[in-house]
Design a protein around this nucleic acid. Structure first.
Lengths: 201, 201
DNA sequence: GTCTATATTGCGATAGAC
DNA sequence: GTCTATCGCAATATAGAC
């Protein structure tokens, strides 16, 4: 069965907005890539901005769901919770290959969607990591002199930058099918060893 | 003494392109922000694209210089070389507060400048870190099973993401005047402890 | 070097036929 | 729900006066 017009537009929008950013994509280009008439954008989404917003919501929908799973681990030991977050990152990027570019685009050049969808997601992730770190320090597992906010940012940075910059690093080193898993595993191990309290302290 | 037209345009361009991205900034907006006539853009820079390119070259010029200093350390121990890189990152972001957004913009939505200026810079940084890691592993200072390319990406990610995402995290936690230095110091320490070989291996 | 005035192109959106 | 034709507007760029 042929995909309907709205789906075709959403798929084209995801790709094009991720590659070029909101303002660099024209409605004509969008319609052509989707193989639909240009008027369909206004008819189905009330214009280019509405299409962008619909695409954003569709991209972030499964993330909220995934966060619920992660947040449910509140009682478990801190390293385990952070490990789950790391796994969650890998899954998200596999499931939504364009979301990293879209998110970086929104952070760098925010649209109205930033406040309504992106910031809420980032805030929840930040809170989750922060609390895990807090508990880990209280339990003597992590270094006691950590600035927790900074440590949370470090984890987000080390886990996500690879996915954003992959197209570049492809030219510098071979990247295979399971590089994503290999990267996230090593990066998380480095981070966890880095925040761990040393035995003689 | 009043700044000349070219300087005024370059300064306005740096700010606006960093904030909104290339295509979202119009020549009218640029001229107005710079306080010059719109025709000056074509006269001095042969158009909007020429202005963007001139701005990029001006932004990246001091980075090449700084890299020379860093690269000169080739004979020193690996941890010392990486420490210098970390310090270099902090200095760059202080000296060029918009470069992080411009670089992220180029990585996410490349313009012709990406190949000519951004990629060369990234490649040099990558090589520098990679070689330092290689030497550190050979000297038994770092974990022997590290994937060096991935470890290099991790370092770049952990050091730079903070500067990119600062505007967001300002809302989640207090950021003071010397937060930049505090962040880079802690993040680098976490990373270095994370890649270090454990004593009983 | 700077300005006004304008040429030209492409944009997003929609009225109205089907 | 889809399409063509078109409107109104803002974009970049520049010719030519000063």
């Amino acid at each position: 069965m042929e995909k309907d017009t709205q789906t075709k537009l959403l798929e084209a929008a995801t790709l094009l907005f991720a590659q070029k950013g909101f303002s660099a994509v024209s409605t004509r280009e969008l319609a052509e890539a989707a193989g639909v008439n240009i008027a369909a954008i206004s008819y189905h989404f009330r214009g280019k901005e509405g299409l962008y917003q619909a695409m954003m919501e569709e991209q972030f929908a499964p993330m909220s769901q995934a966060l619920l799973t992660v947040e449910a681990l509140a009682g478990r030991p801190a390293p385990e919770r952070l490990t789950l977050y790391a796994r969650h990152v890998a899954i998200i990027h596999q499931q939504r290959p364009f979301i990293i570019r879209i998110m970086h685009g929104e952070i760098g050049n925010p649209t109205p969607c930033f406040e309504t969808v992106v910031k809420k997601y980032i805030s929840r992730v930040f809170q989750f990591i922060y609390r895990a770190l807090e508990d880990g320090v209280a339990a003597g597992q992590f270094k006691s002199d950590l600035n927790l906010g900074f440590a949370a940012i470090s984890l987000a940075g080390i886990m996500n930058f690879y996915f954003f910059a992959k197209p570049i690093f492809k030219d510098f080193m071979p990247l295979s099918a399971d590089s994503d898993h290999e990267y996230t595993t090593q990066a998380f191990r480095v981070y966890l060893d880095g925040i761990r309290r040393k035995e003689n302290e």
